[in-house]
Amino acid sequence: MPAAIEIINLTKTYRSLFGLRQVTAVDNLNLHVDEGEVFGFLGPNGAGKTTTIKILLGILYPSSGECKLFGEQFTSSSAFAPETADSRLKASIGYLPEGPYFHEFLTGREVLAFYGRLYGLGGQNLKKRISETLEIVGMEYAADRLVQHYSKGMRQRVGLAQALLSDPKLLILDEPTVGLDPIARREIRDLLLKLKGLGKTLFICSHELSEVEMVCERIGIVNHGKLIKYGKLVDLAFKDRAVEIHVASLSDETRKKLEALNCITGKHETGLTSIRLPARQAVYDVLDVLKASSTDVVEVLSQKESLEDLFIRTVKEEVA
C-alpha cells in the first residue's frame, strides 16, 4: 500500500528580493505517513511545520525535493511541472488552516456551500454534505448566522466542517483544537478518533501535546526545518527511560552484584528496596541476578516520559 504522505529530501529556502538574505524553513526533510495512520507533526514556533503543510497542499513550492500523496508525485520544485495532478490529488485532501478565516459576509452554511462547490459538489448532494458536516462539528444551531458574528471556536468548527466536506482520505489539520473550550476540545478529539476509526489518514500539527498524545500513533518533531525525532510515540516515550525494580529485601552479595551493573539501590518510601537501572537495556541482566539470588521481586516500573517532556527534552538537546 502506498504511503498517504511521502516527503523526500524536501527543502524550502525563502530568499529576499535580490537573494541577499535567505532563510531555510525546511531542511532536507524526509517523512513517511501510512494510510489510515494518525501522525502528529510537532515542533516549536518557526520550526517549519506550516511551511511543510503548505508545500503538501501546493500553496508553497519546494526549493528541492518532492512530496508524494498516495504514491503520486504532488508538488515539485520544477517550474514547468503541470498543475493538473496537483488539482486531482487535492480532491482527496481536507485541510484545516491554523486560525481559519472565512469571508465575513457569508453565513456558516454559505461558507460550506462555497467550498463544497470548489470540490465539485452540487445540488442535493452538497446540501446533504453540508448538513452532515455541520452536525459532526455541532454547528447546526448557528449555520445561518454571518461568520463575522462567530467566536473563535465557532470559526474553528466551521473550518473543520469545510475540511470534511469532500469526505477526504487525508486530513491535514493545523492546530485543530486551538481556541476551543475544554468541552469542544474533547468533542474534536472524539471526532478525530472517530475519523481514525473510519480509516482516514490524519496529519495533525499541534501545540496541544496532550491531545496529540491521546490521538496520534506516530510523531515527528521538527526544529529549524530538520526532523529531529521520528517514530512511534510509544517507542519514543519509553526509549532510554530508567526502569525501577522494587524488591522485598536485598542481600549484601546481591547488592554488590547490582552495583557492579551500575544500579543504584535504596530504600523506597513503601519500605521496599528500590533498584534504579541505568538504562532499560540492563533490565534482563538485573532480573537474572535477582532470580539467581531468589530475591522476591515486587514490581518492575518503567518510567514513561510524557510527550511534553519528550518534546521539551528533544528540542533542548537539539539546541544544545
Binding site: 501546493g58 498543475e83 480532491a91 485541510y95 488552516p97 467550498y115 470548489l118 470540490y119 473550518g159 469545510q162
Partner: peptide, 11 residues
C-alpha cells in the same frame, strides 16, 4: 483565505 481556497482541487 487564499490558503484554504488554493488547497481545494482547482488550478
Amino acid at each position: 483565505t487564499i490558503h484554504t481556497i488554493l488547497s481545494k482541487p482547482m488550478r
